[in-house]
Design a protein around this nucleic acid. Structure first.
Length: 225
DNA sequence: GGCCAGGACACCA
DNA sequence: TGGTGTCATGGC
């Protein structure tokens, strides 16, 4: 039977089980601390993760990956440090905006920020310059362990390639779908998004139409090569 | 040498 | 309100 849309909780859970059985626990997000996750969420905007890692290493090397250090550092210095991640001047400005918000609202403390109720924190994050829905949701889920499904262009592309959604379904609508169909479990949403990204990277890399790629085989119950 | 990567914003019609 | 341009590096 051809899958033209995801409309059922059972289908989403079936896909999750297939991917989870194949990849196992992926332990996202790769970072040493929730604060590093939050910074990485900005750096990864429209950027391959390998380039984000270079910027993170550079920040650590200069002792800048702490709230206080990022608050004090000059924006131009910050921009040069994160240059490998691309769009470095705008990202430096975004990081400065985020850090200013972080200190103004929560005194530069992740535990204080993450105690904020989910709807309030999401609204506040979205009001920060440079933070859109995808970045906000990544921070909420991966830094604060809030039960939010991270729906991004990558998720949409993978689901679309495999006929799991239709083209008119937006990134926002996909998030709504997962949030209404699945239990609000941060661990589930964490692993599910990670599985989708990992599947796209490893099973259908560089295949524009994945009709016959290993991920398709997996989703149809076969064993990927 | 072009395309894309774990986006968001500004600008314009 | 929706489409397009811009930011910008590095890997493939």
């Amino acid at each position: 039977m051809k899958r033209t849309r995801v409309g059922r909780r059972e289908e989403l859970l079936r896909i999750y089980d297939l991917l989870n059985g194949h990849f196992g626990d992926l332990h996202w997000w790769p970072a040493d601390s929730p604060f590093e996750v939050m910074i990485g969420a900005i750096l990864t905007q429209n950027t391959a993760w390998t380039n984000v890692e270079k910027a993170v290493i550079a920040l650590k090397g200069q002792g800048l990956l702490t709230p206080e250090a990022l608050r004090r550092v000059a924006e131009a210095t910050l921009a040069e440090t994160i240059r490998p991640s691309g769009c470095y001047r705008s990202k430096a400005r975004k990081l400065k905006a985020l850090i200013a918000f972080f200190f103004a609202e929560y005194g530069g403390r992740m535990d204080a920020m993450c105690r904020e109720p989910l709807p309030t924190l999401r609204e506040k994050l979205l009001a920060v310059w440079g933070i859109g829905a995808e970045t906000a949701d990544s921070i909420l889920l991966y830094a604060c362990q809030k039960p939010v499904f991270v729906s991004d262009a990558y998720t949409r592309r993978i689901l679309l390639r495999h006929g799991l959604i239709t083209a008119e379904m937006s990134v926002d609508r996909i998030r709504e779908l997962f949030m209404t169909q699945l239990p609000h479990d941060a661990a589930l949403f964490n692993q599910y998004h990670a599985l989708i990204v990992e599947a796209g990277k490893t099973l259908c890399r560089k295949i524009p139409r994945c009709g016959a790629c290993p991920l398709s085989s997996l989703l149809q119950g076969g064993i990927p090569a």
